[in-house]
Design a binder for these strands. Structure first.
Length: 799
DNA sequence: ATAGGGTTAG
């Protein structure tokens, strides 16, 4: 009997020693070893109990074999508090906070100790449930347990994630001092961390809290690497990069994370050069660079425009990836995707994405943004469809991308679908939807959205404001644009640009110029876009001298004119008939004039019926881009106006031979919204009638030539008439209506928005259109339907 | 048996 007890004891000691061996850095090896030891126990009939079974459970937990650990646990008749704590910690680490809680609740009060509380507090802290962590901290005191340094560190860690800090961090500080744990480094570190995190919260007064942190730091009698690192991160969070750098430089032994915190600080504040310099220093000191260092360095390259450096880091990352941890690739690869797509190399970005062993929503969003920002709308659409889960961001990106690429209808459809799927649009999403309305010229829809935006309080958003300015301008109510411009609290150069463009598009050149001058007086620095906008505004309003002057003033603002600026100047001069001067400008260009220049020149020739120069320009253009449909149209217009019908036919033949495709059709919603614009502007501009008369003859002429007119044709025909300039700036939408109606399917109904009445002039307009289209047009006005056919008009009640 | 630091997308 006594022998057997001794045998068992000896075996227990042997197994305990063997299990001790399992604790090695790599979990895999310890797990296999533990299984072997466990198997040996079974074969020799040894029943593990007490600390042996706890050890086993611990090893299984630490090697992510939770299920196995649970089986063992369930076999114990009365698991002690140690086994329970192990399990709670394991559940917490794998995010199973409810199971952790259940295990805790199953534990009898009598055996609960400080450690089991600590384990669950940590669990809540790791699972971002600060409230429950703090609640549990209080409960343990109520149960008569004295919180130790672990309790304080965990609870303080949790505190950083909740909002009502201001009183709590002081309270905790006092409690820690009272309990005598405050001079323990881990507690002070956690406290420091809470202070600096609170300081960076917008709700707190940052300087006070930062001072508390500093005082605590100075009073600490022992500081470890984490203390310094916390201070570095704290300074970085509060935008004091110099303070952070001082800390880093004072550290004798720098942790990897100390470098990382500093580097990411530099990246975050746009100081990419300094970030890369530190990164290089790390490299030369042969400090191991983990995925965070690599990620920050790569995004520094992306921000600083250093593609080659980024590629080098990529190569380095691949080299050191011999022993990849599962999430190594994730953040580094995400940064790489961003790097490549920002340089327009979406193919490389996609390659990185395709090779990733695992992807998160950031990877998906980055590639989607890559397609979107490079205008590859087809790819973006397909990619969006493939996405396993779509965040609000993904929706926003695809909606804005579609809108900016002219697919307003599809963008709005997606916007509605998104809301049906329960997403609440953010201001960026609304901006995308508003842009869609702008693209469609859908005034009513745009106004409805504006209403919703105001209700939800997004109307102070800059991006929404800028989108609204453009939308109202495109929909013909430039005064609404100006109202928005005056109302949004913060405006940037994009707002100014949008507003100047709005005036320009409406032929209000002098208002555009005035606003530009006001912008300069307000010390807003104009950018390339500003000048493009101002130059085209001058062009539409015939302000030749001003345009020339602004063009020459660009250098003062440190902007060298690009080809697009030259194109605007050429356009301006040619519209005014100053062909010689335009030619001189083209000759003075620093680069070889490309398509935009000749397009502007050709358009000018078209207006002034200058056939010789026009044909020259068109030849140059067709050499450069033989597939551009606009050139053929313009050229045939020039010939047609000179009565050279044979040449017109030749141009059209050439076009067919080369397979030049026609522009895409007009969709239903576009028609709907344009009719709206048409009706609004119609009453405001009585001279429209004159335009109709001309159009009517024009269409007849075109049909004689054997083809259906399209928008561009109509527009350019207009320009050759007396009222060309005015017409171009104010009537283009109305002409687009004609175009839209021509593309209407047979029997389609045009809906008119109910706050409009169909009155005299509109009747005439629709009558005219039905003649153009050569068939009946049905217009719905509230409940009433109007039928317009050739000459007469009939009216009836629908119900 | 339990604790504290850092990162990427519009």
């Amino acid at each position: 009997m006594g022998h057997r007890v001794l045998d068992v004891r000896a075996a227990a000691n042997r197994y305990a020693a063997q299990l001790q061996q399992c604790f090695r850095p790599d979990c895999v090896a310890s797990y296999t070893l533990a299984r072997t030891v466990h198997a040996n126990m079974k074969t020799s009939g040894f029943r593990p109990r007490g600390h042996i079974i706890n050890r086993l459970i611990d090893i299984y937990c630490k090697s992510s074999n939770l299920v196995y650990a649970r089986h063992l646990f369930d076999d114990i008749p009365e698991p002690d508090v140690v086994a329970r704590t192990t399990l709670i910690a394991a559940y917490s680490a794998s995010g199973e906070i409810l199971l952790a809680r259940k295990t805790f609740d199953d534990t009898p009060m009598s055996i609960r100790d400080c450690v089991i509380y600590n384990a669950l507090i940590t669990g809540y802290s790791h699972n971002n449930d600060g409230h429950n962590a703090v609640k549990l901290f209080r409960e343990m005191k109520l149960h008569g347990l004295k919180p130790d340094e672990f309790s304080f560190t965990s609870a303080l860690g949790a505190l950083a994630s909740i909002a009502e800090w201001e009183c709590q961090c002081q309270q905790f500080h006092c409690a820690a001092v009272k309990s005598g744990t405050s001079n323990i480094t881990s507690v002070s570190n956690a406290l420091l961390s809470v202070y600096v995190k609170c300081a960076s919260s917008p709700m707190e007064s940052s300087s006070t809290l930062m001072n508390s942190a500093r005082r605590l730091f100075d009073e600490m009698n022992r500081r470890d690497e984490l203390t310094w690192t916390t201070m570095i991160a704290g300074f970085v969070r509060n935008s004091d990069l110099e303070g952070a750098r001082e800390c880093l430089d004072q550290m004798d032994v720098k942790l990897g994370v100390s470098w990382n915190a500093m580097i990411s600080g530099y990246v975050h504040h746009g100081r990419s050069e300094e970030a890369l310099e530190l990164f290089r220093k790390m490299h030369s000191l042969e400090i191991y660079m983990d995925e965070f260092a690599l990620t920050s360095a790569i995004s520094a390259c992306a921000n600083a425009g250093l593609l080659e450096h980024g590629k080098q880091i990529h190569a380095y990352a691949l080299k050191t990836e011999k022993n990849p941890s599962p999430d190594f690739s994730l953040s580094v690869n995400n940064a790489l995707i961003t790097l490549y797509y920002r340089f327009g190399n979406i193919h490389l970005a996609r390659k990185v994405f395709d090779r990733m062993p695992e992807r998160d929503h950031i990877s998906w969003n980055a590639v989607l943004s890559g397609y979107a920002s490079s205008g590859q709308i087809e790819e973006a659409r397909a990619f969006f469809a493939e996405m396993p889960e779509r965040s609000l961001l993904a929706w926003t990106v695809i909606i804005s991308a579609l809108a900016q690429n002219g697919s307003g209808e599809e963008a709005l459809k997606l916007f509605n679908q998104m809301r049906l799927e329960g997403f609440d649009p953010c201001d960026y999403t609304f901006a995308g939807a508003i842009t869609s309305c702008a693209v469609l010229g859908s005034h009513e829809h745009g106004r409805q959205l504006h209403g919703q935006i105001m209700k939800l309080g997004h109307d102070t958003s800059l991006s929404v404001g800028n989108a609204l300015i453009t939308m109202y301008a495109r929909c013909g109510t430039v005064d609404d644009s100006y109202n928005v411009f005056l109302t949004i609290p913060y405006i940037d150069s994009i707002s100014w640009n949008a507003m100047i463009a709005a005036f320009g598009q409406h032929g209000q050149g002098s208002r555009a110029v005035d606003l530009f001058e006001e912008m300069l007086r307000a010390d807003i620095v104009p950018d390339r876009i500003t000048f493009l906008t101002v130059l085209s505004a001058c062009g539409h309003a015939g302000l030749v001298d001003e345009g020339r002057r602004y063009f020459n003033s660009m250098q003062i603002f440190g902007i060298s004119p690009g080809e697009d600026h030259y194109a605007r100047l050429v356009d301006l001069l040619c519209r005014a008939g100053k062909f010689q001067e335009a030619k001189d400008v083209i000759d003075s260009m620093p680069s070889v004039p490309g398509p935009p220049i000749w397009e502007a020149f050709l358009a000018g020739c078209r207006i002034h019926n200058n056939m010789d120069l026009g044909v020259q320009a068109a030849e140059k253009l067709l050499e450069l881009i033989p597939q551009h449909d606009g050139t053929y149209v313009l050229l045939s217009n020039i010939y047609a106006n000179a009565g050279k019908w044979k040449e017109v036919a030749e141009v059209r033949k050439l076009m067919r031979e080369r397979g030049v495709k026609k522009e895409p059709g007009c969709s239903w919603i576009e028609v709907e919204s344009m009719v709206h614009v048409f009706l609004v502007d119609d009453s405001a501009h009585p001279e429209v009638k004159e335009v109709y008369n001309y159009l009517e003859q024009l269409v007849i002429k075109m049909k004689k030539l054997g083809y259906m007119p399209d928008t561009k044709f109509v527009l350019h025909e207009m320009e050759s008439q007396e009222h060309k300039e005015r017409a171009l700036s104010t009537h283009s939408e109305k002409l687009a209506v004609v175009y839209g109606l021509m593309k209407l399917p047979q029997g389609a109904t045009v809906r008119v928005f109910k706050n409009l009445r169909i009155c005299g002039d509109c009747h005439n307009a629709f009558k005219f259109m039905s003649r153009v289209v050569g068939r009946e047009i049905v217009v719905r006005d509230g409940k009433r339907f109007h039928h317009f056919r050739n000459e007469e008009c009939s009216c009836g009640n629908f119900w």
